[in-house]
Simulated assay, not measured.
Amino acid sequence: MTLPTLRDAVPADVPALAALARRTFTETFGHLYRPEDLAAFLQNHTPERWAVELADPAFAVRVADTGAELVAYAKLGPPSLPFEPRGPSIELRQFYVLAPFHGTGLARALMDWVLARARAGGAADLYLSVFVDNHRAQAFYARYGFERVGRYDFQVGGHVDEDHVMRLKL
């Protein structure tokens, strides 16, 4: 399989990004939630919200584009998790790859961009949160040297999940 093209997201991607964010979250976690909780959470992925973040220089979004559709994305932004960063830090806010592209090297290529972008921005640490039962993602992050440093209550509608907070010293 030929890997999709990786590129920075642009304003014209907003509708596709919003749809991809809803699709990837639902594909990965939708089975865990009551429909009303999932629907409430997915309201966070509106085109309007994506447009605001893409226009904000504090955020950086990389997409994987097949030419026909977006199939993966990574979003970096200022730390938002409830913890005190140790120094100059950035957060991997979202990192999703559609299931047909798992195991193709696409996630690795996206993570290479995440690390390079975080370092270029002067971050000393990169933080993220990952669902405690998402063992595939945890193993992926551990291969890069991320370590658990705390926990986080992740709200999906009226449902609360436990996430691990992970940090990578850059």
Rank of each mutant, 00 (worst) to 15 (best):
N44G: 04
E36I: 02
R49Y: 00
V165A: 00
R148T: 14
A18E: 09
L81Q: 03
A72R: 06
S129Q: 05
G157M: 05
Y73L: 13
M166R: 04
V149S: 03
G103D: 07
H45D: 13
P78Q: 15
G30A: 04
G122D: 08
Y127I: 02
F140N: 10
A116D: 14
A116C: 01
L126Q: 03
A123P: 03
Y96A: 06
A139M: 02
W113C: 06
P4D: 11
F101N: 05
A64W: 03
L81N: 05
V71G: 02
E162F: 01
M111K: 07
P78H: 09
A118D: 04
G30N: 06
T46M: 01
A109G: 04
H45V: 00
T66P: 09
R34H: 14
A55G: 13
A19W: 06
L3S: 08
A99D: 13
S129H: 05
H102D: 09
K169M: 09
R119D: 12
F154W: 12
R49F: 00
L42S: 09
P11K: 10
Y33Q: 01
Y141Q: 11
P100K: 11
E69W: 00
A120D: 15
V97A: 06
T2N: 14
E48M: 04
E36T: 12
F146G: 03
L81E: 04
Q138W: 04
A16C: 08
L106H: 08
V165M: 14
R34E: 15
Y96H: 13
V114N: 07
R167W: 06
F146K: 05
R93S: 06
L115H: 12
R7C: 12
L42M: 11
A137H: 08
G67V: 07
Y33T: 00
L6M: 10
V149L: 02
D125C: 05
L6S: 06
F25N: 10
T66M: 10
T104M: 10
P88A: 15
G157W: 02
L92Q: 07
